[in-house]
Design a protein around this nucleic acid. Sequence first.
DNA 1: AGGCTGGATCGATGTCTGTCAATACAACCT
DNA 2: AGGTTGTATTGACAGACATCGATCCAGCCT
Lengths: 123, 123
Amino acid sequence: MLGQDDDSDGCCPGLLSAPLDEAQAAELAPLFKALGDPVRLRLLSMIASGQGGEVCVCDLTPAFDLSQPTISHHLKLLRQAGLIDSERRGTWVYYRLVPETTDRLADILTRPADSPAPAGAAS
Amino acid sequence: MLGQDDDSDGCCPGLLSAPLDEAQAAELAPLFKALGDPVRLRLLSMIASGQGGEVCVCDLTPAFDLSQPTISHHLKLLRQAGLIDSERRGTWVYYRLVPETTDRLADILTRPADSPAPAGAAS
DNA sequence: AGGCTGGATCGATGTCTGTCAATACAACCT
DNA sequence: AGGTTGTATTGACAGACATCGATCCAGCCT
């Protein structure tokens, strides 16, 4: 079981339809923060679109102009945020997406069908 | 200026289906970074769910245990990211959501229908 | 066992960010 | 004009973050 619905899921249809309370905001912010770096964004997209749903670190590291510890650090942050998951197989470590997490974010950013037509929608 | 659809839209069905290139990542990261703070997340959700699609700063500021300049600073960051827009009406300033921006983020985080069933989906 | 390669952790450093008090700017109201 | 209230800007500062080199751990191969 992935640790969702412990207490904060199922209640929040999105941040666009009702004000977030402090606890929800505190839980969500680190997720977005993890996405708030170009390197991590690229890492995540490489992992998400990888053949077989996973990518070897050995394929990720050389794709950047950054040191190997730096890439490892970014992967750790993405993993701690629950966006990706890792598995060691022999010498190599493979990362794959945790779709539940990105799904949740997508949900949160999707406004309900009855979104209150923003008055001055002209343009 | 909000850097939308100048050149990078319409091409990227999402970061989950194909690797982002450096330019796309550099453009998206600041958006997520703007969401990566609990205060800004709450501000955004208060604005998005406000009556009439807009909220007066005078209603936002007292909702936090933070100084008025700090709230103003966060609003500025959200505006610079293109997530909200402001309008001065008399003495008061009103903020409202820019739905195109949140829509774009939601799109980007939504995986395509043919998402590659993550191998170990057992449980 | 000893050596080698892939990856993570540690410690240090420069930059960015969130916060505040003080101040400036804008619009209203005598 | 002068005072008052709402909002933005400035300057300063502590804590967080991205990055690196050096080192350590895990698994492979003679």
